[in-house]
Design a protein around this nucleic acid. Structure first.
Lengths: 220, 220, 220, 220
DNA sequence: AATGAATGAGTTTTCATTCAT
DNA sequence: TATGAATGAAAACTCATTCAT
């Protein structure tokens, strides 16, 4: 696997300490970024919020943008972890997809503000850091891509080969949409309702004809 | 209909002049916001870009955020106008939806950077201005909602009444997704391919059973 | 003549105002740099000392180093002007040299702290600005070079052609030395004494044999 | 002789260790100060360059300025040592002067950057440390003063008693000038040429009339 | 109406020094 | 003795906004 993360230099040597302090920094920063956004949050506020002196904080990062990068990386890591949990090779691809899409909706619901944060602040990263973050986003999307491909093989999902990438992105976007359109959607749907309707929409298309939900490709 | 736009006070009285100058401001600002984002653009740069002195610019706005609001309003107005153009009451709802979804994809493709701008910078507006912008977004979504409702009535579209809002939002998001995921999608699809695949996905679900594409609901 | 000065961009347009404000800045900065040196003087102190707000000061410069450059340029301009005053083409070269060396000593004496400032802070300039300043120093040295060359032609001074540059530099350094070694020299000599002794040293070598001081190259 | 050096307190007791560590510090610091100057060099950089941890370094100094003092002292010590080497009581004063002036030029040539360093950074020392450094500079100058005085006694040099101090300073300055005006001089002279011309200038004045170069006061 | 010089609070970042281990 | 993480005061510079002309 290729290296997918940027190494932020630190003045401090002790790797364990670096990890711990950066965790502190991220946790403080996330809270503030959600409230006020990246630009309206000052470095001093971040330091205060995470219980470090400004000087100490700067021993673990180089610029304010590094904090944003750490935050994005953290969110993506959380997201990826949650999504991978629900995928098991012992399930059929269709089963796997069902679980993981359901899981996606739940996760987005819970990480709502974090998802919005990623959507809105990624562009504030310097070019090189941004590309790492986008790469990560793609990697996460690939989780669904892989399930779809598996479904093509085991015959439990029907997708046009050329639409696999697109479907994976659709799933991601429809999931995340609950976060960034919540302001409108939550007036009419709660997360269960939302999940149910969107899942049926997604699976309508994906389930092979004559193969009704819950059946194992039956008596054809 | 309720008033859906915020009135930004101006020192200048001549309404025609106000409109003209603000147009200048918006055009300059849009260019810069796309390049560097709202926060990294200075008011001086905006003034320069739109050919006004900083003092003059401030005769037509009150704060930098007003410029962002004007920009958002402008983008939404453009978008709405483009989307309304393709809707005609003489078409069947299904026909209408087809045209307008196609049109949505084209428009998003052309206004790509503007769509992304709205997605990323809306949150920088002060609360009250933001709500105007979100309202506008909802109004635009309602274009599709109305077509869907019309389709329920004229029988050319099949949607569950409770899913109408959701479908309208889905359409909007799948359209805009071409803008904010272009970095990933354009490696595999061009806009035609994207449009074709996404439309078939959307309509699969919406077209009444036994009523294949191109037919007018008939019984044959 | 080649351009020998760096143009520092200013946000302000009015050239007259720029000149006036920069004069203010230089005057304030010189006082502080002499007292505490460039590095230990803060931009806020400079602004305060010259009666401008920090924001206003920065409308006329780009960086703190620009202030140093302006100061160096100012000092050199003062120095050059003073030195050129004493040179007249109607005098013999020897006469001219005598006057201008005397004048150099007087000037260095009066501008003592400024001379020391140049010696000590030039190296704090960024490379490109430094080269302008060194160029200026060379130009000033050329004043003496020219007189020496004239002396070779009119026969009132005897120098080896290849030593002309060197002698010019020697004169400059022996002049400036009164500034940067004053801490030691002034315990034993006052400026008159210093001038008298150093001049006789310089001229001993330069006066053609048999041509005693005060004579006009006359007969014999 | 009076004590001419400042004692910098150290937490460490072992004098041998102190000397050794300070030597390390000076060597590292000199390299950096030459490159970037005193103010632009950080204590961390110094520590790194000399292979000590920042904490350890501070066991041997009290402030950053102490490092500068140590550096100045080191340079002066080097300089003084080199200059004293060439002086022998068995030579005539004139011979001695010749050797030591020649030696001065060579030394300045080799220690060029160090000489410039002293010239430019001495002023950054706190008052009390600076006076030690200036004292040292004077002591070195006294080397030449003594030779001149000896020349007055043994008749091999002709100087006005009141000019002795001045001549000694002149010699020093003309020597050091090769370092701090190298940027201009080296375009026209190399060190040999420079030495030859400056020596003849210095000695012209100093050699008793009728006593040509190389002669021992001959026939009188 | 238009101009653009003036303002200063606020921002990020640095770095000499300390001190617990 | 040696280490290096912690500290926070202080620095340079920016920029939205105002207001006299």
């Amino acid at each position: 696997m290729k290296q997918n993360s940027h190494i932020i230099p630190s003045v401090v040597k002790d790797q364990r300490l670096i990890a711990q302090r950066r965790q502190q920094i991220v946790e403080g920063a996330v809270r503030l970024f959600i409230q006020k956004g990246f630009h309206k949050t000052t470095t001093r506020e971040i330091a205060k919020e995470c219980g470090l002196s400004i000087g100490t904080m700067y021993e673990y990062i180089q610029t304010k943008e590094d904090v944003l990068y750490l935050v994005c990386e953290y969110i993506h890591t959380q997201l990826e972890q949650r999504l991978r949990e629900s995928v098991s090779d012992s399930d059929s691809a269709r089963e796997s997809l069902k679980k993981s899409v359901k899981n996606l909706f739940d996760t987005v619901n819970e990480m709502s503000s974090l998802i919005v944060l990623i959507y809105q602040e990624t562009k504030s990263l310097p070019k090189d850091l941004m590309s790492y973050v986008l790469q990560k986003e793609e990697e996460i999307t690939r989780i669904f891509e892989k399930i779809l491909l598996r479904g093509m093989e085991d015959g439990t999902l029907s997708v046009d080969a050329d639409s696999v990438k697109l479907m994976a992105h659709n799933i991601m976007v429809i999931g995340q949409m609950w976060a960034f359109r919540r302001w409108a959607l939550s007036r009419y749907y709660d997360i269960e309702e939302y999940t149910k309707r969107q899942m049926s929409l997604i699976f309508e298309k994906l389930i092979p004809r004559g193969d009704e939900d819950g059946n194992r490709s039956a008596s054809s």
